[in-house]
């Protein structure tokens, strides 16, 4: 049942969370499958958070942060971007398709980008179906 697809969205407080807010106040439609967790910075996100989400039954995990150069804490998104590569490498080894893990830079004003990203991500996951962990 594709409607039960679960997406965990970890969004940075200063940019992407604001972007989601913009999308919301402008009443832009995006899939209700995403559960948003607000974090103070994408640099705060540990790889273990992603793994925990998958372990607990998420079919996809989305991470949103500030555009490179715009980090509220100077360099947090650089740290996340390096970390995300490791996450991709690890997921691959455990048979989780790399399309199930996505990250994007979305600023507070980019409500539309948030909407389209969620749409795309949801469609990708629909094609892949629910995640079956090994």
């Amino acid at each position: 049942m594709s409607d039960e697809l679960k997406i965990v969205g970890l969004l940075c407080n200063w940019c992407c969370y604001g972007g989601a807010d913009t999308a919301g106040t402008a009443r832009m439609q995006y899939p209700p499958n995403v559960r948003i967790i607000r974090v103070m910075c994408s640099g705060r996100i540990n790889p273990s958070m992603i793994f925990k989400a998958f372990e607990e039954g998420a079919d996809g995990v989305f991470v949103g942060g500030c555009h490179i150069g715009d980090c509220h804490y100077d360099a947090g998104n650089y740290k996340w971007s390096r970390r995300s590569k490791i996450v991709e490498d690890i997921l691959e080894e455990f048979g989780i398709e790399k399309e199930r893990f996505r990250h994007e830079w979305i600023s507070a004003s980019e409500g539309e980008k948030f909407q389209t990203t969620m749409d795309e991500f949801y469609k990708t996951l629909q094609k892949l179906g629910p995640l079956e962990l090994k």
Partner: peptide
């Protein structure tokens, strides 16, 4: 689940 056990150490 290997992803939540070895995954953490790996990362």
């Amino acid at each position: 689940s290997p992803i939540a056990f070895q995954g953490i150490r790996l990362s």
